[in-house]
Computed example of a mutant assay.
Amino acid sequence: MKKFFLGLEDELLMVTETRNDHDSTSHLKGTQPTDLVVNHQNRNQIFCGTYGNGLWKSEDGGESWFAIGQVNNYHEPNKGKGIKSAYITSLAIDDTDGTLYVGTEPSELYYSQDGGLTFTEFKAIQNLPSKPFWQFPPRPYTNHVQSIAPSYSNNKGLNVAIEFGAFIYTTDFGQTWNDRPFLSPKDTHTLLAHSLAPGRLYAACGDGFLDSSSAYAESENDGKVWKYMSKGLEAHPYLYSMAIDPENPDDRFVSASESPMKAHFKDDEKHKRYSTIYRKIDEEPWKEISENLPVNGSFIYELATDITESGVVYAFNNHGLFRLKIENYKWERIEIEWKEKYMTQHPSFLVVTSV
């Protein structure tokens, strides 16, 4: 059986599969959840970031939550510990040792090796040459850590995407950082690594909005050298979320739209939302796979796989939750309670685990 975590604008929706149905419960109301990670060494331990309401932790599989990472108590002086920003924008957990990584707005990067009891900042990223050029287009006065991918080829390696402006990486656990390798993406929305392809990085990019040939990129050496592989995405070159089959690192899925306006904006006469999903197998061009999937009026899809299940991909946006069994090549709706208010909310993440 599955458990789904759906990030909505005003709540975390947890959907648990039962023998005959699905049970839905709402959590963290009013916090604007932004990202969520499950510790696969202990699936009851889950972390959820929020935009403006800090970092939260569950120790019972998502049934209850408590805030963590605070800098200091109200009546104590600031000791410089904890997470300084309440605006959490990205999370990741290292599968090998359980290290938790936290990215914020403005761009700061932290890690915890004790399950979130204490946090340490990677301060060296503040001195990177590209930092003065980091700028998030909707709020050009700021920027944020958009995506984090621990390396599978180097236990001290960490790969990070800043929106907008840079891909950065470290090979020595943050003692030194490498800034914007030649031809690396500048607007990576989702950065992934795969345990069966150590050293490979996958980047679903917003760069394609200005140049369709830059929509998707991969690196075979943890970001030192990048290759763009965007053929087939010309009609929808703005990419956002991504998923990879857990048993096949050459089977990739991305959510795509024509532009950020059609992916993220509210529907009006000027901008009509339209989002779809593409698949790339091996070296073949990308192909759109949207049969039975609502595309008109759709915010950009969030994608996910369950690491214990090959051949199945899940997608979620304002129209609901969907499943693709790859052998059938068409989507089916997962029947869960879907409230009218969800139809106008932008999705922020989808995480799927086995119960």
Rank of each mutant, 00 (worst) to 15 (best):
Q70C: 14
L303V: 07
P260H: 03
I93K: 07
G206P: 14
Q345C: 06
K84E: 07
G49C: 01
I148M: 04
S257E: 01
R333M: 11
M261H: 10
H75I: 03
E332H: 10
L12N: 05
V352I: 13
V37W: 11
D211C: 12
Y301Q: 10
A193V: 02
D23M: 08
G223T: 02
N44L: 14
D222C: 11
V38K: 10
A203T: 11
A67W: 02
L12M: 04
F322V: 07
D211F: 10
N53R: 12
R252M: 08
D23G: 05
S354M: 09
Y141I: 03
Y111K: 13
T276R: 04
C205Y: 06
K186D: 11
T190D: 04
P140T: 00
E108P: 04
L36Q: 00
F164P: 00
P285D: 05
G80R: 03
L117G: 04
K270G: 01
E269S: 07
K3T: 12
I46H: 02
D97A: 09
E291T: 15
S85K: 00
Q345D: 06
G174I: 06
E76K: 14
T190Y: 03
T171Y: 15
N127Y: 15
H189A: 12
A166C: 14
K280M: 08
T171R: 15
M229G: 00
Q345M: 09
I300T: 02
T118F: 09
S214R: 10
K231R: 13
G54D: 07
F133Q: 13
W338Y: 06
K325E: 00
L13K: 13
E258S: 05
G297W: 06
V254R: 01
S255I: 14
L210W: 15
G116H: 10
G98C: 02
K224M: 15
L192R: 07
L201Q: 07
E291A: 14
K231I: 12
T142E: 11
T118A: 10
W286F: 12
T104C: 03
V225P: 01
S85P: 05
K84P: 02
Y202C: 14
W65E: 06
Y314R: 05
Q345V: 08
W177I: 06
G115P: 05
E335Q: 14
H271I: 13
